[in-house]
Simulated scan of single mutants.
Amino acid sequence: MRSRPSFVTDAAITEALAEHWRPVTEIAYLPWGFGAHHWRAETLFVTLDQLEPRHTAASLESTYASAAELAASGLEFVCAPLPTRSGRFTAGIGASALSVTPMLNGRSPAEDEVDKPAILAALDALHHAPPPAGLRHWSPQVGPEFAAELRSRTAAPWTSGPLAEEARAALAARSDEITRWTARYRELSALAASRRDTWVPTHGEPHNDNQVTTPDGLRLVDWETLAVAPRERDYADLPDAAGLDPEMMELFALDWRLSELREYSDWFAAPHTGTEDDRIALEGLFEELAA
Rank of each mutant, 00 (worst) to 15 (best):
115 D>Q: 12
258 L>A: 00
95 A>Q: 13
39 W>D: 01
40 R>D: 08
283 E>W: 00
71 A>Q: 15
157 P>R: 13
140 P>V: 02
165 E>F: 05
197 D>F: 06
137 H>I: 02
169 A>M: 12
121 A>T: 14
14 T>H: 02
224 E>K: 07
223 W>E: 11
33 G>D: 03
111 E>V: 14
57 A>F: 14
124 D>V: 03
195 R>W: 06
289 L>M: 09
98 L>S: 08
261 L>W: 02
7 F>M: 09
117 P>R: 15
129 A>Q: 07
135 L>M: 15
182 T>V: 01
255 D>Y: 01
229 A>F: 02
114 V>S: 05
131 P>F: 10
219 R>C: 10
150 L>Q: 06
137 H>L: 07
21 W>H: 10
68 A>E: 07
245 D>Y: 04
40 R>W: 01
246 P>M: 06
105 N>H: 10
67 A>E: 09
251 L>R: 08
264 Y>F: 15
38 H>D: 03
167 A>N: 03
126 L>Q: 02
158 W>I: 10
177 E>I: 02
164 A>H: 09
265 S>R: 11
114 V>W: 03
273 T>K: 13
242 A>P: 09
135 L>I: 11
238 L>Q: 13
48 L>Q: 08
109 P>E: 03
160 S>F: 07
57 A>R: 13
35 G>R: 04
220 L>K: 00
123 L>D: 00
167 A>V: 04
87 G>R: 07
86 S>K: 09
281 A>M: 07
196 R>I: 05
268 F>T: 05
125 A>Y: 08
141 Q>T: 01
213 T>M: 14
176 D>C: 00
50 Q>E: 13
2 R>F: 11
81 P>R: 08
284 G>D: 05
37 H>E: 03
79 C>H: 13
35 G>I: 03
251 L>E: 01
153 R>Y: 14
104 L>Y: 07
283 E>R: 14
148 A>H: 13
279 R>N: 06
242 A>M: 08
225 T>Q: 11
91 A>P: 02
85 R>I: 07
291 A>G: 13
37 H>V: 03
30 L>S: 02
190 A>R: 11
201 P>E: 06
22 R>A: 13
260 E>D: 07
281 A>S: 12
210 N>Q: 13
101 T>M: 15
230 P>E: 09
154 T>W: 05
272 H>I: 10
266 D>W: 14
286 F>W: 09
210 N>L: 11
288 E>S: 04
139 S>I: 00
91 A>D: 06
282 L>Y: 01
